[in-house]
Write a protein that binds this DNA or RNA. Structure first.
Length: 500
RNA sequence: GGGGGGAUGGUCUAACCUGGUAUGAUACCAGCUUUGGGAGCUGGCGAUCCGAGUUCAAAUCUCGGUCCCCCCA
């Protein structure tokens, strides 16, 4: 009896990766990165990882999706140098103060010591806006909306984690200039909509946009809005952020135009930065399970894998031929398809492709050949209910249907998990209690203006909770509530969470 | 930033305390065999993070560096 049980447990461990991502998130994450061959941390520069083909393919697809969305919204692509002269970097005071501790500097080239140090861009405001100053002469040059897909470098002092926080990461930065403040504010709203369209609707990552407190703004910005999502360990991860820069940078970089009265006006600016590599990290963590990663259908490097099941007794050639014809049919539908003809056994192949998140698997053995059908198995379903027998002539319709259903289930699971991790608290005791089981907690709070920072610091020091800000466009205001820290009148509801 | 743990074939690991021919598994290559949930047999390739010190002798002891992981800020 005992032996039998041990055997069953061992068999189970062998079949699945079998790590509970809620209970043991770090282990789960490190294991999928390795087993699914997403990244390689053996590269010998701290905080820099190698992104392997399986992840790189998805990241490229994500870039394409985001770039399309930006161009639909009137942004044009640009490509700027990664090196920024020190004197550019020093122009906007708040910006320098915020970024200086994280900048990598190039000081030498060959044997020569450079006369002027060059920053490896941590973000490109200071590279782009001097060019904006040249490009923008009159109102005819406005609005200016550009984006670039690139990598940036930041010397992170916090613990690094592949994709979540690296010293070199991959993002898109969009920068704009407008004649009026109103247009700039509209742009910020458009940035949030783009985030909704891409990060939620395409990547299936739920989030909330917060207006960040005064003490947590982008260096040099008037206002910062950022999307937060929750990881399986209940910590928040910041996704795209958009910043109302006002005229801080345009005045510093002299970006202006002559108005109809012949007077000089400075432009109103915004910038927006979705970190694609980080969003990728969030995506695999949100959708993954005990078998490995999962991705929304469109973003899988491989949509469908075909596994031949050959047996000695029957004509292997017949099965192989059938597999090839099915492969051809499905490829012609436009799906990224692989026919796995490696020497491994079927069970090995199931696990291999499941850990990588291939959403649809097709099994073909003698049974299928004789009936003119295929067995279709879905990645996110349990073994017992995952297999369907489908006739070849129905495949096109069936795959389209199943892909759609797969995405719907992915989205529903993500939303349910996200909402299940949110709650509210009206006293410090309640907050302390709920912080154990929830991610984002809504509390009445004195203020996200500078004078609320003391209360925020208290929550950070005592409970490791960060004030993420007020929910953007959330009309809900506390009525006759007291700040749960200082007991003064609560001006707003803020959300607090442990953060990465 | 603080604390802790660690680095041995591609991966995991034994030997480290008590210095003396580096263990096993897996992966990989070849052959045979097998294939409906990680098959088996035989043979083969392959490693002590870097630098200095102690010593007849260092994976092992000492110091410095690099990198990784975990917990906390």
């Amino acid at each position: 009896m005992f032996k039998q049980r041990v055997f069953i447990i061992l068999t189970y461990l062998k079949i699945y990766m079998n790590i509970d991502k809620q209970k043991n998130f770090s282990e789960w994450y490190n294991t999928v990165l390795d087993l699914a061959e997403l990244s390689d941390i053996r590269y010998n520069v701290k905080g820099c990882i190698v992104i392997r083909p399986w992840a790189a393919k998805t990241i490229k697809l994500m870039y394409e999706e985001y770039e399309k969305e930006l161009e639909r919204n009137g942004h044009k692509p640009v490509i700027f140098p990664a090196l920024i002269p020190k004197k550019n970097f020093d122009i906007e005071k708040e910006h320098v103060k915020g970024f200086s501790p994280e900048v990598f500097w190039v000081e030498k080239a060959g044997k020569e010591k450079l006369e002027e140090k060059l920053a490896l861009r941590p973000t490109s405001e200071t590279a782009m806006y001097q060019m904006f100053s040249l490009w923008i002469q009159g109102i005819v040059d406005l609005p200016l909306k550009v984006y670039q897909s690139c990598q940036v470098w930041r010397y992170e002092t916090k613990a690094t984690k592949p994709f979540f926080r690296s010293r070199e990461f991959y993002w898109i930065e969009a920068h704009t200039a407008f004649a009026t403040e109103k247009e700039a504010i509209e742009q910020v709203k458009q940035d949030m909509q783009m985030t909704e369209h891409v990060v939620f609707e395409k990547f299936k990552i739920p989030f909330i946009f917060f207006q960040r407190p005064e003490w947590d703004k982008f260096p040099g910005a008037q206002k910062t809005f950022a999307a937060d999502t929750l990881m399986p360990d209940k910590k928040v991860l910041q996704l795209p952020s958009t910043h109302l820069l006002g005229q801080n940078f345009s005045k510093a970089f002299d970006v202006g135009y002559l108005n109809s009265e012949g007077k000089k006006e400075y432009v109103w600016q915004t910038c927006y930065g979705p970190a694609i590599s980080r969003i990728y990290g969030a995506m695999i963590c949100i959708h993954g399970d005990e078998r490995g990663i999962m991705l929304p259908f469109e973003f899988c490097p491989v949509h469908i894998v075909i596994i031949p099941i050959l047996t000695k007794e029957v004509a292997q050639e017949k099965i192989t031929q059938y597999c090839h014809s099915v492969y051809k049919i499905i490829s012609n539908f436009g799906y990224r398809t692989i026919l796995d003809e490696s020497e491994n056994t079927p069970g090995y192949k199931y696990n291999y492709w499941e850990v990588r998140g291939v959403p649809i698997r097709i099994e073909i053995g003698i049974k299928e050949v004789e009936e003119g059908k295929v067995t279709l198995a879905l990645r996110d379903k349990k073994e017992k209910e995952q297999k369907l027998l489908v006739a070849v002539e129905d495949l096109s319709q069936r795959i389209r249907f199943e892909a759609n259903e797969f995405n719907k289930r992915l989205e529903k699971r993500a939303i349910d998990t996200f909402q299940g991790l949110q709650t509210s608290a009206y006293s410090i005791e309640e907050l302390e209690q709920k912080a154990k089981d929830f991610g984002l907690i809504k509390i009445p709070f004195c203020s996200i203006e500078a004078n609320g920072e003391t209360c925020a610091k208290f929550l950070k020091d005592k409970y490791s909770l960060d004030v993420r800000g007020i929910k953007y466009l959330d009309a809900e205001k506390p009525i006759e509530r007291k700040c749960i820290v200082c007991k003064k009148e609560a001006k707003e509801f803020v959300y607090v969470a442990k953060q990465y």
